[in-house]
Amino acid sequence: MSLIDSISLPRSIRLPRVDGLIQWILPLAVIAIWQIACVTGFVPTRVLPAPSDVALAGWKLLLSGELVRNIWVSFWRASVGFLIGGSIGFAFGLANGLSQLSAKLTDTTLQMVRNVPHLALIPLVILWFGIDESAKLFLVALGVFFPIYLNTLHGIRTVDPQLIEMGRIYGMTDGELFRRVIFPGALPSIFVGIRFALGIMWLTLIVAETIAASSGLGYMAMQAREFMLIDVVVLSILIYALLGKLADSASRLLERATLAWHPAFQKR
């Protein structure tokens, strides 16, 4: 142990700081090259506005309050849709992972529904809900449901049966067995589902907002296209990328905190 400690200490102090810088080198370099390309006229600003123009457009929208409002609307749709779809997926995953009866009853049906691409439902959803909030929430929830359902189910089914037997031998009640053995065992897989679902969440929302919405980032981008405001279009795309990255980082952070026991997350 002392050997591992002595190796890991200096590294674990140095690594995160360097790491934190390293990952930003490439994006910053890209922005710099982009700026230079635009300023020198190598790329016409009709095709791609300079980063400085995008920043300016962002600043104006920020001042008018439009940017914050649209980001907030999109963020709200994403998180509420995620929570609804995620909780239902999680609940079905738990039920079907823990109960044979429940699995027999619903799993085949769910697997069939899974094979329908959820974005193919957009026309139907618009007919049902119009371009109401519920349309977007429905689509996001549906998109998020399956990765969470499938990975929760998989996680629970692959918990080491020897550990479950151990729990029973040591007199754990069903509740304890779930809390102390099954759920922690399924957690790594559940996190895989969450990361997948976050990707699908943004994708669904972008599509839904560009097709059927009167607010939100996707709507802002579509409006800007109508008026040929290419800087705002690029801005919306960048904000989507940033929000996606943020969501991913948040889930990684949560993963790191809850899976500290996992060999993959232990400091080496």
Binding site: Q162, L163, M166, M172, R180, G185, L187, W261, H262
Partner: peptide, 19 residues
């Protein structure tokens, strides 16, 4: 196989034995 809970520290694993 030791059948320890990987997500519980050593002491917590031993406490499991108290039934």
């Amino acid at each position: 196989e030791p059948r320890l809970l990987p997500w519980a520290r050593v002491l917590a694993n031993v406490e499991v034995g108290l039934g």
